[in-house]
Design a protein around this nucleic acid. Structure first.
Lengths: 241, 241
DNA sequence: AGGCTTGCATTGTGATCGCAATTATCGACT
DNA sequence: AGTCGATAATTGCGATCACAATGCAAGCCT
C-alpha cells in the first residue's frame, strides 16, 4: 500500500475508467479472469489501486457488452459461463461478421499491413513453440484485429470486438487444456497471402476456416462438460493498469 | 420542484439507473431525442429528478451500445449522427441478424404469439391512420421484438436490440419527415402468416423484405443530406421515468 | 450434536463534494 | 461598434460517505 497519490493532476492521457476498462478487457480476452468466478467492485478497485468509482464505470461497459454478467438477484457480478446455446450463437455471429471484415480489409491491404501481420504471426508461432498460452492469445487477437481494423467498418468492428470479448475467457480455458500443440495458425498464412494479393474472397475463406477450426475445438470442449464454472481457485490477477 | 424524497426505502422494483436507462433507451428508440443534439449528465439528471450518478451509469451502458456517442475531446456526449457508412453497416447487420431471428422464431410460434402480434399490428395500423409517429415507432419495435424474443437466442437478440438502438433516432426523424402515409406495414401480414404456419423461410423473407423497405427510405433520406445533426431546438423531453 | 438464528463484514447503489477543464457570458479596449 | 480577453458557470471525472441488502460464520437453543 502507501501508494503515492499525485492527485491525478493533469487530464493527461486517458481517463482512469478507460484504463480500468482496458485492463479488465485485456484480462478477459487473454483469459486471465476465468469464467464463473465472482468478482467484486471493491476488490477489483483495490487490486488496481483506484477507487471503486471508475471500476463501476468500466464494469458497466463490460456488462453492456456482455463480457461480464450480473446476477439479477444477488447483484453480484461474474464472468458468464458459456452454454452450448451461447456458443452456437456466438459462432454463428463470428462466422458471419469476421469473414466479412476480412473481405472488406483485403482491397485496402498494403505492404505495411502484411509486414505487421507477419511480425505478429511470427510472435504467435514463437508462443506456440514455447507453449506460452497467454502470449498466443494476445498475438492471435492482435492478428485478427489488425486485419479487421483495416476494413474501415466501425460498426462491424465493434460488433466483432464484442464477440471476442464474450468468448475470450473460454478460448483461454479451452486452449489451456488442449495445449498449444494443436492450435490453428496455419490458416494465418492463407489469410496473409490473400491480403497480399488483395483477394477479398480468399481472405474471407481463410478467416472462415480459421474460425471454424478454433470453434470446433471450443465446441468439443464445451460439449465435454467444460461449460460451467471452470477455474477453481481463480486469482483475478489483473494486469497492472 | 420541491420533489419529495422518500429516501428510496425498499430495494423494491428495479435500480434507478436501470429505470433511467430504459427511459433514455425508449426515448432513443422512439426518436424522442434527436440526433446531433448534445446532452449533459446533470441536465438529464435534473429532468429525471435523480442525482447525476445513476444517469452516469445509464449513459455508460448506452455509450457502450453505441446508442450515445461521446466526443473524445470535449467529453461531451450526444446522439451520434448517422453517416452513410454507418447506415450501410447497420443495414447489413440488420439484414443478417433479424431474418435469422425470425426464422428461428417461426418453429416456436404458437397461437398466443400470433394473437399478440395481431394486436400490436392493429395498434400500428391505427397509429398510421391517425398519423401518430410516436405510437407507430413503439408498435413497430414491439412487433419485431415480439417475434425475435421467440427465437430464444439471447445473444442474437441482444445484438439486434443494439442495432435498433443505433438506428432508432433516425427512423424517427426519417419517418417523421416522410410522413406516416408510406410506412411499411404490409409485410407484417406476411410475417404473421409465415409464423402461423411455422414457415421459417417465409418468416425470414418477410422480415428481410420489411427491413429492406424501411432501410431504403432511410438511405434515401440520409443521402438526401439528413445525415448530419438534425433537429434544431431539440428539447430532450425524456419520458417521466 | 445438529439445525437455526443472530451478528458482523462485504457488496452494490445512490448522493454529495472537490477538482480540473471547457464553455458561455459579459465587460473593456481600440 | 466590433473584437478580444477575463470572469463565472457548467461539465465530466473521481473520491468519499451513507445505506439497505446480502453473504458468511460463529454461537445459541433444543
Amino acid at each position: 500500500m502507501a501508494e503515492q497519490k499525485p492527485r491525478r493532476s493533469l487530464a493527461d492521457s486517458r481517463a482512469v475508467h478507460d484504463q480500468v476498462y482496458d485492463s479488465i478487457r485485456q484480462a478477459l480476452i487473454t483469459g486471465k479472469i476465468a469464467p464463473g468466478v465472482g468478482v467484486s467492485l471493491r476488490s477489483l478497485a483495490a487490486e488496481l489501486g483506484v477507487s471503486p468509482m471508475p471500476v463501476r464505470d468500466a464494469v458497466r461497459r463490460l456488462v453492456a457488452e456482455r463480457a461480464l454478467a450480473i446476477n439479477p438477484a444477488n447483484k453480484r457480478l461474474s464472468v458468464p459461463s458459456l452454454s452450448a446455446e451461447r456458443l452456437e450463437q456466438l459462432e454463428l455471429a463470428r462466422q458471419w461478421i469476421e469473414p466479412e471484415l476480412a473481405a472488406r480489409a483485403a482491397p485496402r491491404a498494403d505492404e505495411a499491413l502484411v509486414r505487421k501481420l507477419k511480425a505478429i504471426d511470427q510472435d504467435l508461432e514463437e508462443a506456440l513453440r514455447v507453449g506460452d498460452v497467454d502470449r498466443y492469445m494476445v498475438a492471435n487477437h492482435a492478428f485478427h484485429f489488425a486485419i479487421y481494423e483495416r476494413a474501415g467498418a466501425e460498426v462491424l468492428l465493434a460488433m466483432a470486438g464484442g464477440l471476442w470479448l464474450q468468448i475470450g475467457p473460454f478460448m483461454r480455458v479451452v486452449f489451456g487444456r488442449v495445449g498449444t500443440g494443436s492450435l490453428p495458425a496455419d490458416r494465418h498464412a492463407e489469410a496473409m497471402d490473400a491480403l497480399k494479393t488483395r483477394d477479398a474472397e480468399g481472405a474471407r475463406r481463410a478467416i472462415a476456416a480459421d474460425l471454424s477450426e478454433g470453434m470446433d475445438k471450443m465446441r468439443a470442449a464445451v460439449e465435454a462438460g467444460a461449460g460451467l464454472t471452470v477455474a477453481p481457485a481463480g486469482q483475478t490477477v489483473i494486469t497492472v493498469l
